[in-house]
Nucleic acid binder design. Sequence first.
RNA 1: CGGGGAGUAGCGCAGCCUGGUAGCGCACCUGGUUUGGGACCAGGGGGUCGAAGGUUCGAAUCCUUUCUCCCCGACCA
Length: 431
Amino acid sequence: MKYSNFFLPTLKDAPSEAEIVSHKLMIRSGMIKQSSAGIYSWLPLGLMVLKNIEKIVREEQNKVGAIELLMPTIQSSDLWVKSGRYDDYGKEMLRITDRSGREMLYGPTNEELITDIFQSHVNSHKDLPKNLYHIQWKFRDEVRPRFGVMRGREFLMKDNYSFDINEEEAKKSYDKMFKAYIKTFIRMGLTPISLRAETGPIGGSLSHEFQILAKTGESTLFYDKKLETLNPENIDPNELQSYYAAVDDQHNENNCPIPKENLKISKGIEVGHIFYFGTKYSEKLKAYVQDKNGNNIPVHMGSYGIGVSRLVGAIIEAYHDDKGIKWPTSVAPFKVAIINLMPDDQDCATKSLEYYNYFMKNKTDVILDDRVCSIGKKLSDNELIGIPFQIIIGKRDLKEGLIEFRNRQKNINKKIKVDEVINFTNKNLEL
RNA sequence: CGGGGAGUAGCGCAGCCUGGUAGCGCACCUGGUUUGGGACCAGGGGGUCGAAGGUUCGAAUCCUUUCUCCCCGACCA
């Protein structure tokens, strides 16, 4: 992508409505524009990141055998009446009446719909286990939306639902998801901390929430330091679940089960939540299968959510400095930025294009900053949008056969010979 | 939903107390000079002052109503 052809409206000052750093940076870097309280348009740069996160989530789900489908945003109220949640959900649920006076709603979650889909097609224990998911926009009419996309009313969520014959099998599905979640967040460059959680209105008996570490996080976490150094290739859910982790109001110094030297305290942001809730919905919505003996039994279910749009904000909370965003490479909108400081200079233009064409051909996400504007603006815009690897081409260095290479995350600036730029960048991309 | 704050140009703000028909910085447009950190000079465009009603010869400014947005709290992916 050439910057001059792109739509990337950066701002020097954030609008006064933005308070926390990720919200400010998302607005300043032209990722989102607020439409109304808790509802945002995703501008091209923001959408790219959202899609990258979505892709990682999808890949990790598919790897463990979850099957993607897509359910609607607008649902009819009748299934919710059956499950008993039409009244329970209260004002958080956005209710809509269609032209014939039917009561509809913008789905805040999808247990009812998925259970209905399941029950109408699955009748035998032989079809189990099943794990279905979708990535869809949800709406919860929060009393007080805030923190930009981290607590919007409209948000993109990956939610899946597992169906098993009994509790023991359901726990296996649960653990599989648990593991997939840890891997998903690690792939995004984050440090996930899993905590045993309250089940809340979704109900059930077993639940974990996943927080990621960020200095500016909302909750304070107390946890075993082993949770900080996980090897994604070698995750044992049961072992992880046995490690100590608690949010501040559950933590008690006096009966903390682990020694003080192993206890870490950090701020976190919740980005995922998983539940096992047994037969709560399957009984109400008649999701029964026949077991080996021909008995109709309700399936055991779990549900698993990842806040995809929230992750965009959360990652920024975890990775930024006073100049802007520092994207982890895996989710960055572009991996490489080629910054031509002097687009009017023939040599600079030629060199920039040469690199640009190379990366385009090699399918590396690359942006060429070919704008005619001051150097300061160019460099600060690129710092703001936080592309991990920046190749800076200017007349001064080029005369000496040099180019400046920057790693935004590691704060590394380095002069490199022009001929080595491509190899050097590729080497960095592999890390 | 309780408490607090704010709506004036795309963004950040001043003006309001003490009414006289709107201003600054950035951004934008034109021309020129610049070129390794948001550059400079000159010229220029853009606002029914959130909305409605009222007071007044006259309202951004005073009064009333209303809408929106933000912050703190209780609640959540």
